[in-house]
Amino acid sequence: MKRVFTSHNVLPGFGLSMGFTMLYLSLIVLIPLAALIFRAMTHGFGAMWATVTEPRVIASFRLSFGASFLAACVNGVFGLTVAWALVRYRFPGRRLIDALVDLPFALPTAVAGIALTSVYAPNGWLGRPLEAIGMPVAFRPLGVIVALTFIGLPFVVRTLQPVIEDLDQEVEEAAASLGANRGQTFVRVILPSLLPAWLTGFTLSFARAIGEYGSVVFISGNLPLRTEIAPLLIMTKLEQYDYAGATAISVVMLLASFALLWIINALQWWSGRRAAARR
């Protein structure tokens, strides 16, 4: 039986480790997820389609995907800035800042949610001046973008950092020796080699933002059709025991997540191949 799976190996423990892996994976992940898919199928495609084309649902999808995309764009720009500054420049507090970039990974999302809300609320430290210049943040779509930017912030920085560290500075010197100025070198030589990692970071940040719940629900105001994100709508439907509606929205979200997971895998394969080719 074992030989069907694996060629001879003198190391022991394949059966035990593989058995436990499959058992635990099935119990915690596969069976529950399969139950969701199965549940969705029992409701039938027509009912599902009716649910996901309700105006309220469409509005929530538009907000979730749109705000996630914009937040990923903000992170794309500033993540590159932060990563570049952290790797290439020396300035006081660099190590501290470097450690702090992971705060969104470590801070519970609910805490992030209430902290951002209090800061960006109309009477908050930053909310008041922003409101004064006509840019209210909290309880508006903009608030959703702020929360999702916070959540996705580490992804672009952390995927770019090792790649910038590995950049061969001789290549930049070669570009300079061929007459390129710093700007040309950056745009023509550096950016293209960062592209796969940058896209990976962008997609990771986008994927994380789509499903985010905790940090958004406090700051968004949760007005149906205006500031209601899709995960919140699932929550609402569950609380009303509308399982059919909740599963329908979930299936759409899951499909989007799997597609993104697939894209991320492809991107990582691409950047891995680039890194291998550089050696």
Binding site: L33, P231, I234, L238, Y241, T247, S250, S257, L261, N265
Partner: peptide, 26 residues
């Protein structure tokens, strides 16, 4: 890929799958 799957699933959906399995009408 399957091991990474839970990272791709929204937390709300992660909770919901257990409601669907074990909840009152699950």
């Amino acid at each position: 890929t399957l091991i990474d799957l839970p990272f791709a699933v929204s937390p709300v959906i992660a909770g919901m799958i257990f409601v669907i399995l074990f909840g009152r009408t699950g």
